[in-house]
Design a protein around this nucleic acid. Structure first.
Length: 200
DNA sequence: GCTCCGATTATCT
DNA sequence: GATAATCGGAGCG
């Protein structure tokens, strides 16, 4: 088990190096823990797809803070998604946690995700992952090095796949999504919505 | 103020 | 494949 100093050192690196290294890591919130299988990198203020692209606001303030904290945002009027803030303090880069395999607290996770038909669906997709772990607005900005909310890195996995990020209209071409091959909890790729007005 | 629309998901055809 | 659900952030005037 790495100490918190190791976690901070790992997360302080460039986001494109940090993101693949988070695959296989264990994220725990209270009784439920999961092994991360799919993540996406958001490269701070330089990234048109990032919430930080237009500068610091009340919502994204946590992204601009020190690494090792959780950035939680609310979207589509009903879903929470969470990121691990990384990079040096002030860079606003973060890694979106898209999917994981529940490895502890299965009963709790199942009760929070009544529509999941199989255990592999419990934390498949960023909003489902937050729901399975009971992560909401109260967890925004929380330090990931102290219980009940902890992130424990694993050794870097042997094989990592990369591809375009999901659901973005901006910078949809950048291959900054990372996942573990042959993992049932990884969501299948869906191209970003075209976002064009009606034509005919 | 007011409008648009999103780092989504479940459900319907 | 298409779309409803549902609301707050961000842009504009």
């Amino acid at each position: 088990m790495p100490r918190s100093a190791d976690l901070t050192a790992l997360l302080a690196g460039p986001v494109l190096e940090v993101a693949p290294q988070l695959l296989g890591a264990t994220l725990r919130h209270g009784d439920v823990a999961l092994r991360l299988t799919e993540v996406e990198a958001y490269d701070g203020a330089r990234d048109p797809g990032s919430h930080a692209y237009r500068g610091r606001t009340a919502r994204n303030a946590v992204m601009f803070g020190p690494p090792g904290h959780l950035y939680v945002y609310f979207t589509y009027g009903m879903h929470f998604c969470c990121n691990v803030v990384c990079g040096p303090d002030g860079t606003a880069s973060a890694v979106l946690l898209r999917a994981g395999e529940v490895v502890d607290g299965l009963d709790h996770a199942r009760s929070r995700r009544p529509t999941a038909r199989a255990d592999r669906e419990l934390a498949r997709g960023p909003a489902n992952l937050c729901q399975a772990l009971a992560i909401g607005a109260a967890e925004n900005g929380r330090d990931l090095s102290h219980p009940p909310l902890t992130l424990t890195p694993a050794d870097a996995p042997a094989e990592v796949r990369t591809g375009p990020r999901v659901g973005l209209r901006q910078a949809a071409d950048r291959p900054w999504r990372f996942w573990l091959p042959d993992e049932a909890s990884v969501s299948s790729y869906r191209p970003a919505a075209p976002g064009r007005r009606t034509t005919s």
